[in-house]
Nucleic acid binder design. Structure first.
Lengths: 251, 251
DNA sequence: ATCGCAATTGATGTATACATAAAGTGATAA
DNA sequence: TTATCACTTTATGTATACATCAATTGCGAT
């Protein structure tokens, strides 16, 4: 099989999973539409077995829904679903922050978090934030959230947060890029960074309730971003997962 | 293939999943032990394809862990892992209760919940609680928690709670049976039922914070049950999932 | 013209064969 | 006696063939 130069270092299953996820998030499949395995075989270039594996994993991931009679379809999400998913993530991250505060962390544990904080501070120093700076922010923000989650030292919680953040519109950086065209952008990033600073301070001082509350509020910034982006209808193409949102307008 | 009368109404995948889950929870496989697919084929009587499907689903369920070089092994849990899983479920159920309170529910929505409440009241009226009554309680308790979760009317949250409760030791009724031999049994059930009553009252009065707090505390009863059962080492055989707990003693 | 039944088509669920990679074992050399 | 290398065995990952079930379409009867 030399029809194309495939990277044999990754398994066919992973390849199918990535290809199908991209296809779904890019809107190649409409919500509610049944995904035919044969059609998926054609799209991905792998055989049915890894395709089936990928479909099962994407269902667990939340992007697909099992059809009772068999097979899978693309899941549809309402705006409420997305806001709930964000609130859910905030609740879980709040629990992680509380665990970290209550159980205590060492100065060494906080080091990478504080480096992240400083790097974001550096980014926000430029007054008109460039698009490149937004991309850097997304990466740093994702790193900060991952480190904070690990600070809980709770494997079950880390696992659950990862699963809750798997949905792209529920992830900590899901709607940051949507801000890049908004005038409120800089203010929102400054507020978010203040949340970051506060949660670290609360954890250092072992203030569990404060750490939990601020992380909950922090997540709600993503909800504000979503509503702003939907209302202004600006740069919606920057939000890949928006193809899955079923609004009254699209029906 | 007439070697045994198999129920063809359920899929082979489901059959394999149930059989393997029972095998794991009953301690047939030791934590950390690699699950051979061929061995699983022998145990379940189905072919490799549905076995592989079942293994993937059990991994997503949290009972198995993927081995980097391929295949799966039985996951090991510490006592801390289990307590964290319970706290996690309590946090999610608390969020569900808060959603229900804040968004409001109709009297019709609460009807089945109150019937559940009354049925449990009836059960607790007998002074020495029989083992049968404990079994009935487990069923009613599971129903109450499921109904309460649905009261949130949030599909993403319901989904996440189901996933968090999939681990048997994290489920609302995971450690109830362990109480059946304890003298504190009746008191704990009375306290639990009081929590049930309070959360309904809070939801009716749209007291979101109260509903959330009481559900969090309610989940912690399961943690108390676990610690009691582990300390007394009594009727541990009633707790199927205990085979997965890696304590200092078992190493 | 419409409703119902049957047949055909196409889907998924399952089984198995094959290839590849990893792990374990044995032998040989230091 | 121990360590290393090679070989064998066995595992998983993948592909494909087959069976079964559901859905759709077409034909016939009312």
């Amino acid at each position: 099989m030399a029809e194309r130069e495939v990277d044999r270092s990754v398994s066919q299953t992973v390849k199918a999973q990535l290809a199908l996820r991209d296809l779904i998030l890019s809107g190649g499949l409409r919500p509610g539409e049944r995904i035919s395995e044969l059609q998926a075989v054609e799209s991905t270039g792998v055989s049915r077995t890894p395709v089936r594996m990928a479909l099962v994993r994407l269902e667990e991931e939340g992007l697909l829904e099992a059809i009772p009679s068999g097979g899978f379809m693309v899941k549809a999400f309402s705006e409420r679903d997305i806001l709930d998913s964000i609130e859910l993530r905030g609740t879980l991250e709040g629990l992680a922050a509380r665990f970290a505060a209550e159980r205590g962390v060492t100065a060494r544990d906080l080091e990478p978090l504080k480096e992240c904080l400083a790097a974001i501070d550096e980014l926000l120093r430029q007054v008109p934030i460039s698009v490149d700076a937004f991309s850097s922010y997304v990466a740093l923000n994702a790193r900060f959230h991952a480190l904070l989650t690990e600070l809980s030292r709770s494997a079950p919680l880390i696992r659950q947060i990862d699963r809750a953040s798997a949905l792209p519109f529920a992830s900590p950086s899901g709607f940051v890029m949507a801000q890049s065209a908004l005038p409120e952008a800089q203010q929102i990033l400054i507020i978010a960074q203040d949340h970051h600073r506060i949660v670290i301070d609360a954890i250092e001082n072992r203030e569990g309730a404060r750490a939990e509350a601020v992380m909950r509020e922090h997540a709600r910034l993503a909800g504000r971003n979503l509503r702003l982006a939907l209302r202004n209808r600006t740069h919606l193409e920057l939000l890949p997962a928006l193809a899955l949102i079923t609004t009254a307008a699209t029906i």
